[in-house]
Each structure stands twice: as C-alpha cells, then as structure tokens.
Amino acid sequence: MSLLVFKPEGIFCPPANVYIDPWRKVERALITHAHADHARWGQRHYVAQEHNEQVLRARLGKDISLQTVAYGESISINGVRFSWHPAGHIPGSAQIRVEHRGEIWVASGDYKVENDGLTPAFEPVPCHTFITECTFGMPIYRWQPQSVAFAAINQWWMEAAAAGQNCVLFGYSLGKAQRLLSGIDPSIGPIFVHPSIAQMNEALAAVGFQLPATLPLSSYNRKLHGTGVLVLAPPGAADGHWQKKLEPYTDATASGWVQVRGNRRRQSLDRGFVISDHADYPGLLQAISATGAEKVICTHGFTALFSRQLREMGLDAQEEHTLFMGEGGAAAQEETE
C-alpha cells in the first residue's frame, strides 16, 4: 500500500491514520500552510509549522486544537516520521516530509523557488515520491526576478503620485500582501491596508515577521482624500465603495496570471504586475528534479499537461484530483474542475 493515498477526505497516510490538508472533517490534519483551500475549518486537531500559530487561530478560531512544530523538527505518529520544511510560498508554508520504513514521500502543498526575502526559502527535500502543485505548469509562465516587478510597481506608484493620483493594488490578504509590503519602497508615500490584511500583518508580526508600518483603511478615514497614497486590498474587497473615496486613482493586480495579455486585460484594471507565490514552469521542473523523486503526483493546476510533460521527460508522473485551487483564476478553476 502507498504511504499516502488520495481519499475523498483528502491526502491520507494509512499507517499513521492522519490526513494532509484534508478538505473534509477528520480527526487529525497536518497542514502545509494557512490558505483556505489547505487549512480548512472544523478539523478536530491541527498540526502546523510554528509561524502559523496566530494566523490559523485568526482564521479558524481562537480555540482550535493546534500543535506547532519548527522547520526541520520531526514528530512521530504510529512509527511514521513527519517533518515540516520551507516551501517558500507564504510565511509559515511548508512541505511535509513523510518517512516510513525507509520510504520517503513529500507533500509540497504550494511552493515557489524564488527567495522572496520574507518567507524562508524553498528547500529541496530528497524523496521517492513528490506530490506537487502545477498551478503555472505551462511554459508560457516564466517569472522575471521579483526585483523587476517591484521596480515597475514603485515606478507606477511614483508616477501616479506625481500626477496627483492614488494607487490601489490588489493581492491576497495572507502571503501576497506581506510580500508586496516587504518589496515596495515605503519612502514613496503612506501605505494603507484593508482590515483583512491588517489582521494577517498583526498575526505574522506576533511570530517575528518584520513589515513596514501601514495605516488602516477605514471608510471614515479622511486621509484617503489626500493623493499619492497606496492602498493594498484583497481582490474580493473590490466593491467600488471605498475606492470612490480614493478618486482619482489607478488600480492594479499582482498575480502570475497577468503574464498573459488577455488575462491582464480581462481584469479591467489599469495595470497587472507579474508576481506569484507559486513556482513558474522552470521553477516546477527545477524543484522536481532537485528532489530526485522517481514518482511525481500532480494535484492542482495544469495537471494533465504537466504530468504528460513529466512523463515525456522520463518520470513516473500521474495526476490526482484534489480540491486545491492554486492562485485563484479562470485557468486554475478550469484545470481543477
């Protein structure tokens, strides 16, 4: 029997009787990272890397039963050894290494290989079987170093400020927002953040992540009528109500999908900056090769195409259906349907 199997509840480890990132309610859930499609509400017990302490409680409830472990630290359950290793995806994200009777599997959750300077960098973990995402598993998705995108964002903000405009930049509350904050030049002007981002900033600051000072976005905040401010907000918060107070403003998104012009234009935002917390196509291939795995299981993203590509490269690759979403977007939903 395989060390990890794909069941309707999630990724299951039979000898240990635990699940990794389950999407149905189970007794014990080992969590790779705190995004909602991996850390779901209602599990009896959670085990996660220690940086997730505050974030998980803020998202899933103060009173959840949560055990935390440090990177590299291992715990043993029924003779199966589990350890958490940096995935470079978002603060606190980990690959979970599973070892039993000499066989090693790694469930990598979501990951990126570029060191973003905020999140501990992705660490290749040698294994026999590697479970990988492939959100951007097509060769058209290839990232420039993040310094290129940040230079473009800084320039966009400076030009807007000089022209008397505000800037609204959309990115997820957990992960993307903090990465943007740590890469954007805070000397350009005041940065306001949406309450959901403020909450995540606080939860991460409590475990030692250092982020630049921000101001809370509030509908009563008169300072927003000034010009040249940057507002960070999650994509779901774009309701037009608070944005009105910012007029005149220019808006943008930071996402891997905007690498393709059609996707960028469909957003109907002024700008799109290519910054993703997922590995690009070369990054996926590099990470897979670094594990030395002979067997690869593709769980979300362009699973059919990417696993076919891996097979052509001589690997034993297959796809498994999961409810992981990758970086939200039409194409991701398309491939995980």
Binding site: M138, P139, I140, V260, R261
Partner: peptide
C-alpha cells in the same frame, strides 16, 4: 513538444504572444 506548443497557443489565444513567452 508540438503538443505543448499547441496547448500554449490555445491558452494564450495569440500566436505572436505565445512565441514571445515560450
């Protein structure tokens, strides 16, 4: 591979852009 290039074209929707990206 030809098939991967064709899939990329399908995804991007524009040959000139697809080639520039890959």
């Amino acid at each position: 591979s030809d098939w991967m290039l064709a899939e990329c074209y399908q995804q991007v929707g524009d040959l000139a852009e697809t080639l520039a990206l890959v």
